[in-house]
Simulated assay, not measured.
Amino acid sequence: MTEVLEELVELLQLQPLGELSFRGNSENLGFRNVFGGQVLGQALMAGYKTVEGKDAHSMHGYFLRPGDHSLPIDYDVQIVRDGATFSTRRVIAKQNNKEIFAMIGSFQSPEEGLEHQFEMPEADGPEGIYSELETRRKFKELIPEKVRDQYTQDRPIEIRPIDPINYLAPDVRKPYKQNWFKAVAKLPDDPVIHQCILAYASDFGLLGTSMLPHGVTFMGKGMQVASLDHAIWFHRDFRVDDWLLYDMDSPSSSRGRGLNRGNIYNSEGTLVASVCQEALIRRRKK
């Protein structure tokens, strides 16, 4: 693994504080607050540390307060139920004794069942498509100096957007977008690591889908943007160190909120996960 990917895996490996309590460090990606994907991945890992013999099939979380990326995050797990097939965990993330995130995660024993899925939509690439990082470095002089280093540093997840937008001068588009993404190096075979890293990566780019029809981005002057909730359903096994297509849409935005959805496919066309998120996309009052 590369150093930045090793750091991400280490970030997800929480420190035990007690039988049902864990602590995770935070990273600064140049955003004002803790990156939501970090909290998603760590909360899922906290739940996994209290479950044996079952795999996560869904997680539903609410972002309650902004997180401070200069402080660690404590995760308290409550065992809601352990059944023969399903186990349920409630995970609360805290900083300064205040809840910043709450999640319910459900875990299932391996089981065979009826099978169907949406067909993978048409998509170019990923070969020959510039990554977000390559584009940022090419135009780094346009990035505000205070976040330039964070925005152009090596990243553990490579993202290759199809038909990318200019975040500093966005145009008006239909509410659809597609990204290819994968870890930058080979990961261990542990499926827990792959699920937690997918949870981490699923927060990149999703929120912006609901802003496409309005010609604005999170970097726009006067915009207040934040994730409000986030849900993931894991359908089938996958590897996040292979290319995955993130096919996103936004069916609605209203009342200062935008709804974003995404289906994640492997390169062979298998639907491996689905995501849904509502976001705050508010124009600040002058």
Rank of each mutant, 00 (worst) to 15 (best):
D76S: 14
D76Y: 13
V77E: 06
I79E: 09
I79D: 09
R81N: 01
R81H: 01
G83Y: 06
S87R: 13
S87P: 00
A93P: 01
Q95S: 06
N96D: 13
A102R: 14
A102G: 06
S106L: 00
Q108K: 02
S109W: 03
E112F: 09
G113P: 05
E115P: 04
H116R: 12
H116I: 13
Q117K: 05
Q117T: 01
E119R: 15
M120G: 08
E122Y: 10
P126M: 06
E127K: 09
G128C: 11
G128D: 03
I129K: 14
S131P: 02
S131T: 03
E134R: 10
K138M: 13
K140E: 14
K140D: 13
L142R: 11
K146T: 15
K146E: 15
V147G: 04
R148Q: 04
R148K: 14
D149Q: 10
D149L: 13
Q150E: 12
Y151K: 02
Y151P: 00
Q153V: 13
Q153T: 08
Q153P: 05
R155E: 03
P156E: 04
P156H: 03
I159V: 07
R160F: 04
R160T: 04
D163E: 15
I165W: 08
Y167S: 14
L168V: 14
L168A: 14
L168H: 13
Y176I: 10
K177P: 02
K177F: 11
Q178F: 02
W180V: 03
V184M: 05
A185D: 02
A185K: 02
L187R: 05
P188E: 11
P191Q: 00
V192E: 05
Q195C: 08
Q195T: 13
Q195S: 11
D203N: 10
F204S: 06
G208T: 01
P213F: 13
V216C: 10
T217A: 14
